[in-house]
Amino acid sequence: MTDPVEAQQIMLATMAGALVVMFGAIYAALFAWSRLRKRPAWMPAAYLAYLCLAVATIVLARSLHLSGFWSTVVFVMLFGYLLAPHAIWHLCVGTHESAHKTADTDSRNPLNGGQTNE
């Protein structure tokens, strides 16, 4: 795992590392924006960003000489990053819905004196 990157590839490896995080965020942002505004047309752009993320990850993995077990880890993490915005989106919707339901219940409950911040 720890063979250093070739001198000629330092720039390539660092830029690929930066692009992994950048495209990860762009994918997440476009995904969330498409769902929020109910614009499915944006979704292909989100997956295009994910594709760029995948390419950047592979370039990074190759320049870092990752192989064997570490290649598997890279693909598992790549798959994880594909699913992460979906999971986080469900969490967003879930937490907001649950908060609204609690607020509705609280407003109808005459016993709720608002003694706690929860």
Partner: peptide
């Protein structure tokens, strides 16, 4: 390599909340 995950979570949540 896992450390950017909270940041990606923040991006989704920030977009959601700004909307």
């Amino acid at each position: 390599a896992l450390e950017p995950i909270p940041l990606v979570a923040m991006v989704v949540h920030a977009v959601y909340d700004s909307g």
